[in-house]
Nucleic acid binder design. Structure first.
Lengths: 133, 133
DNA sequence: GTGGCAGTACTCGGATATTTGCTGTCCGAGTTTGTATGG
DNA sequence: CCATACAAACTCGGACAGCAAATATCCGAGTACTGCCAC
């Protein structure tokens, strides 16, 4: 029970793209160097973010990634779901009569966390970061 | 990022022990049958609960497990921590200057979930279960 | 100078290790209860 | 009738096997920019 490193890379990449001048293309190389990760592995993570519609890529020389429009609405939860999937954190597959009370409590707990993460926007954090500089 | 099956087994076992007449010893066999799990595997999980001081075991014939005193205070969070450990769900091991804002947000989110689970006592749930019967 | 051509710098995607943690099994050892056996 | 021995029913703990997911690497293919060269 732990968030994967991939999620961490995805969050940091999104934050970086949000801080950098918008519409500027950033290559995987540069993103990977900042996080000390192999470019090929990071690119697989970014592919998920592309498919989730959060960023877009342009190939070829001087290519790279950048945020898509309405990126300001993207929350932490969106990014986490894009990487980890949308499945519930807890699933009771025991077949004990009625629906599982334990399951219900666990799902409710999970929702508490998600509620918070849904309100944490990458754009808000980016604003705070630039203010410090 | 998922809760392990072991956590599910632990929660169900604790709930069962809380519903059954107190001080009665229940063998691993019986507990394992109810959850369709191999007794040897379940015993490993129960060992963790013993070390966490939630239940106690007596060996030998007619031996088994039972709850310890002050079990009524045991929360879902206690059980989860006993099985999954106390480490934070999210750890940013990148060395990027100051402490990581992303890490802070993730930890706060985690605490939202934990706050809820800390208030869910096994004894409360057991009370509800018996009321239904 | 301008149109094509090759080289370069990228991303994309699939295939494939490597590692790690969860799940599960096996077995020997210790412990308690119950039973049988022998004096 | 009592004591001792033995068997049965347990838990305990370590060692180990299997498996799936996360992590990471490699490589071929496609794509866009740049510069060069011939006409």
């Amino acid at each position: 029970m732990k968030f994967s490193k991939a999620t961490n890379y995805a969050l940091h990449t999104m934050l970086f793209l949000a801080v950098v001048p918008p519409n500027k293309l950033i290559g995987v190389q540069q993103l990977a160097e900042r996080q000390e990760v192999s470019p090929t592995y990071l690119s697989k993570i970014l592919t998920k973010l592309v498919k989730a519609g959060m960023i877009e890529s342009t190939s070829g020389a001087n290519g790279g990634y950048r945020l898509k429009r309405n990126w300001e609405e993207i929350s932490f939860l969106d990014i986490i779901h894009a990487i980890e999937g949308n499945a519930s954190l807890f699933e009771c597959d025991l077949n004990h009569g009625q629906d599982c009370m334990i399951q219900k409590i666990m799902v409710t707990a999970e929702e508490k966390m998600e509620d918070y993460l849904r309100n944490q926007k990458i754009s808000e954090l980016a604003k705070k970061m630039t203010a410090v500089l």
